[in-house]
Design a protein around this nucleic acid. Structure first.
Lengths: 194, 194, 194, 194
DNA sequence: AATGAATGAGTATTCATTCAT
DNA sequence: TATGAATGAATACTCATTCAT
C-alpha cells in the first residue's frame, strides 16, 4: 500500500482568490500601479498565471478589488486610531500621530492610497472606492468637529503625509501639532464623545 | 545641376529636443506615467521614434526632464498668483482661489504634479525635482507667514486640491476660505510684503 | 426535517447533450469555426464548461457532431423544397428559389455549410459528413435529371449562393432562371416524379 | 586585423515585408485562417515575431494584405489561361481544364480562395478584395460570352472546383465538358476575340 | 454523474532599445 | 546627425483540457 503523494501542489485551495487580492495590494505597494503586472501578482501569490484570469476579468478588475479591500481595511484602522479619544487635546494628538506615522500605517500603505487616488483620477469606476473611503474618514473626524473643519483636517492629514513621505527633511512634531491645533481654534463642533 | 528634392520634412529642427519634452508632459497629463510610452511621445511631438533615443538616454531620462520642466514652469505661476497680494485678507483669498482652480492651473497640470510625487516616491533621482518645487512653493508662502504655517498652508492646498479633483461633491468656496483663515489665526508672521 | 435547498438549476437535464450540439451549430454560424470555443458554446447552451468535456471527447468531437446534425437537418429541407415539383418548369423554379434564398435557408445556415466544406478540406474525418450530404442532395436532383446534370445543377447552386452572399450587387432572378434553364436544355433525364 | 563577423543575421533585409505577406499566404493555404497565427507566419518567413507587428497593424491587417496579394496574383493566371482561346470549343475546353486543375492552380491556391470567401463573409473589409477578384474573373469570361452567362460560368467553376476538391469520387472530364457546353448553348454572346 | 476550479501552453500585441544605413 | 527598421523580452489574455470534490 502506497502513501498518497501530493502530485500537483495545492490543487485544492479555497482561499486562493482572496490571497491573490492580497498579493495585488502588496505588489502595488512595492512597485506602484505602473509596475503591477499579472505575472508579479501571480508570483507573489504563488499561483500560476492562468489562475488570475480565471478568478478576475482582467488586471483592471483585480486592481479595483485590491483597492477596495485596501480601503475597507484601512478605514477601521483609522476609526480605531480615534477610538480612545476623549477631548480636544486628545484629538489633536491623534491627528498629529496619524500624520507622523505613529498610528500603525506604514509608508507602503499610504503609497497604495496615493496610487488609488491617481488611478481614480483616470478611471471613474474607482471613484466609488475613493468616495466611500473619504466619507468614512470624514465621518470619524465629524465625531469631534463640525463637517467643514473635518474636511479641512482630512485634507491637512493627506497633504502633510504626502509631504512627509516625500521630503528628506524631517518635520518637527510639535510644529505639526501647533498647526493642527490652530485648525480647531474657536471651534466647539459637536459635543465631544463622552 | 541637381533638382531640389523634397526631403523628409523638418530635417532642420533646432527646437526638436525641447518640443519632445513638452510632448512628454502632455502625454503624462493625459495618460499618466503608466501610460506614457516612447511611441506616444514621439507621435505627440510629431517626430520619428528614433529621435527620442537620439536625444535622450532613455524613457527615464526623458521623464525626469519633463518633470523638471513642468516644475520649473509651475513655480513662476505660483509666484505670480501671489504677486499682487498686499495683506492678510488678500493672502487668504489667493490661497482659496488656488484651491478652487481659479488660478490658471488646470486639472491636467495638477495631475502631472501628483504623478511626479508618486514617481519620486519610487525613484529617488526625482527627489531633487520635488524638493526644489516644494522649496520654491514654501518660499512664496513664507513671504506672508512664518515657515511652520507655510508648511501647513502648503499641505492644506495639496490635500484640498486632491480631494476636490476626486470628489463628485462640490465644495463651498466660503467654507474653504474659513478653514484657510483659521490656519492663519493669531499669526503675525513676517511683515507682509511692502 | 431538512429544508428543500435550491440546488444548482437544471441538475436533471436529459436534453443537455443535444442542446449543446445545437448551441455549437449556432456558434459556428455566428462566429465561424475559428471563433468557436468551448466557452462560447457552453455560454450559448447555458451549461457549465465542464459539462462539455463530460459529454464530448473534445472540441473536435463536438464540432463533428454539430456538423453532422446540421447536415442531417438540412437534407430534409432540401428534399422538402423539391417535394411538390411536378414538371421541368417547376423544377427550374425550385432551383432558382433555392439560389435566391426563397427556400427557407438563411445565410447563417449556408455559412455553416461552407464552414463544414472548409473544415473537411483539412480534416478527413469530416469527409463522411460532406460525402453523405452531397449524396443526398444529388439524389434529390436525380429524381428530375440525369446524374451528370444533377452534379452540374448542384455545383451551380453552390457557386451561385456563394457569389450572391458575398456580392453587394443584386442578381436578377430572371437571369438566374435563364441560366438554370439552359443547364437542363435537351435533357429528358429520368421520368419526372409521378 | 579581424574579419568582420556577421553578428545578427539579416539585420538589413529590404524584402522582408513582402516576404512576410508571402509567408502568410502559405500558412493560410496549409493551415487555414483558423490555424494561421503570427508565430507560424514569422517562422515561415524566418523572421522574429516582433517584426510582424512592426510592419503590420495586426493579424487582421496582415491577412487582408495576404488575401489581396493572392487575389492579384491569381487573376493574371486566370486571364492567361484564357489567352490563347480562339473559339467556342476552345473556351469550353479552357473552362473544363480550369475546373479539373489542369490550369496551374493547385489545391492550396483554391483553398486560399475559399478561405478568403469565408473570411469575407464575416469581415466586410475583405469585400473589396472579393469584389475585385470576381469582377476581374467575370471580365475575362465576358470576352467570350454575355454577362449573364459569364456569371453562370463563374459560379459553375466555383462550385465544381469546390466539389471536386472535397469529393473522394472522381469526376469524368467529358461529363464536365458536356455540362459546361450546355451552359453556352444557343448563346452567341459578344464576338469571340479574333 | 457532474462541475467549478485549476492549469499551462499558446495567443496577439506593445514596447524600449539597438543598429545599419 | 538622424532615422526607419529591427528585435526580443515582456505584456494581458484565451483556451482546451484536467481533476478533486
Amino acid at each position: 500500500m502506497t502513501l498518497p503523494v501530493a502530485r500537483s501542489p495545492r490543487r485544492y485551495d479555497p482561499e486562493r482568490k482572496s490571497r491573490i487580492v492580497d498579493a495585488a495590494i502588496d505588489v502595488v505597494a512595492r512597485y506602484g500601479v505602473a509596475g503591477t503586472t499579472m505575472r508579479r501578482i501571480a508570483a507573489e501569490a504563488d499561483v500560476p498565471l492562468g489562475s488570475l484570469t480565471y478568478h478576475f476579468a482582467g488586471l483592471d478588475d483585480l486592481l479595483a478589488q485590491a483597492f477596495q479591500r485596501h480601503a475597507e481595511r484601512m478605514s477601521p484602522l483609522y476609526e480605531a486610531h480615534f477610538h480612545g479619544v476623549r477631548d480636544r487635546e486628545g484629538f489633536i494628538d491623534a491627528v498629529t500621530d496619524l500624520i507622523h506615522g505613529d498610528a500603525g500605517a506604514d509608508p507602503g500603505e499610504w503609497a497604495v492610497a496615493y496610487e488609488l487616488y491617481l488611478a481614480a483620477l483616470r478611471d471613474p469606476r474607482l471613484r466609488t472606492v475613493t468616495e466611500a473611503w473619504m466619507r468614512r474618514s470624514r465621518a470619524v473626524l465629524e465625531r469631534f468637529v463640525d463637517p467643514v473643519t473635518a474636511r479641512g483636517v482630512d485634507a491637512m492629514i493627506e497633504g502633510m503625509v504626502m509631504h512627509l513621505t516625500l521630503s528628506t527633511a524631517t518635520f518637527d512634531r510639535a510644529d505639526t501639532r501647533a498647526i493642527v491645533a490652530r485648525l480647531l481654534a474657536d471651534t466647539d463642533g459637536p459635543a465631544l464623545p463622552r
